[in-house]
């Protein structure tokens, strides 16, 4: 692969470049300033404000009580809240199950489509189709199909599984997973397909000459070379799944009795149903920490050591 050489060349180029342009940092800052100011106003300030809110008692339905500083009370209350733990459990369950399904589906079909030549364009287009829809709209579509008299239960009756009540806790979570995997498996597929196309086929040929079987070639040639692509998909999807909102909110809305709420839905309910801004902010900060921890975990376990 030429990537290593190219990278080395880039690095050498960068060093040389910055020796010439060392004094240009101020000019560079001028280029960056508009974006930086925008981000400070629309991103950093709201986030700081969110932290401030999380340390205060602030309820929109009890505004006569005013806004008081309560320290970490919102956080300790959130950690004692059984809904927080059930929300965390649901989010983890949805994330882990969907990740496993999406990545394995993406990888299997990337391997198949990479081999296929004649129809793979058509197949790829059909497979990518769900990824292109608006997630909220496809969640509503599925909600229609998940009705007790809907087409999914009809098919399940046809194959003698029997109708399923999708409004229970376990089935509700499964329905969210089904819709998420349906909508997003193609993301892994696209990235993995690009990854496979970047691999030099001669590597497989060489491994074959060395006597590696198909499984051995997959484990020792394909997987290591695909690691950056797997890491990217894993990190992006972990973030998206841990803060999943649309599908859960539309399909179950937490029903029955807030038992299927994800972390983001929990924040939404506390903030915009109970108008407890302080509590909602604290929960969203906790959710942020959970997502950061999960992504760091992905990078530490799978990431390569950067030498620069």
């Amino acid at each position: 692969m030429g990537a290593g050489a190219a990278l080395a060349a880039t690095r050498a180029g960068r060093q040389g470049r910055f020796r010439i342009l060392r004094r240009r940092s101020f000019v560079g800052f001028c280029f960056v300033a508009p974006a930086l100011i925008t981000l400070a106003a629309t991103f950093a300030y709201p986030l700081g404000y969110n932290l401030w809110l999380s340390l205060h008692s602030y309820n929109l339905s009890e505004l006569y009580l005013g806004i008081h500083f309560v320290g970490l009370h919102n956080y300790s209350a959130a950690l004692k809240d059984p809904y927080f733990w059930s929300g965390l459990r649901n989010s983890l369950f949805i994330t882990l199950t969907s990740l496993a399904l999406e990545l394995s589906i993406g990888m299997s079909f990337a391997l198949i489509l990479y081999r296929q030549t004649r129809w793979s364009g058509t197949f790829r287009f059909l497979m990518i189709l769900p990824l292109l829809l608006i997630p909220a709209v496809s969640a509503y579509m599925w909600r229609f199909m998940f009705q007790y008299d809907g087409v999914i239960n009809y098919i399940l009756r046809l194959v003698h599984v029997g109708a399923v009540n999708w409004a229970k806790t376990a089935t509700g979570l499964i329905s969210v997973i089904i819709v998420t995997v349906w909508g997003n498996a193609a993301f892994s597929l696209i990235i993995f397909l690009a990854g496979l196309q970047a691999i030099d086929p001669e590597l497989w040929a060489a491994a074959k000459v060395d006597g590696a079987g198909p499984v051995g070639r997959f484990l020792h040639v394909t997987l290591p070379l695909m690691r950056p692509f797997i890491l990217v998909v894993l990190a992006i999807r972990t973030m998206d799944l841990l803060r999943l909102f649309d599908e859960g909110y539309i399909l179950t809305n937490g029903a029955p009795a807030r038992t299927t709420e994800t972390l983001s839905q929990l924040v939404y309910t506390d903030t915009f149903t109970y108008f407890d801004i302080g509590r909602g902010s604290a929960l969203s900060v906790l959710e942020g920490f959970i997502v950061v921890a999960a992504v760091l975990f992905c990078f530490v376990t799978l990431g390569e050591r950067r030498d620069s």
Binding site: F43, Y45, P46, L47, Y49, N50, L53, L242, R243, F245, L263, S264, V267, Y268, T271, I277, G280, S281, S284, V285, E287, G288, V291
Partner: peptide
């Protein structure tokens, strides 16, 4: 950062 944490403020 979770979208909802940006949406509240």
């Amino acid at each position: 950062f979770p979208t909802i944490g940006l949406a509240i403020p």
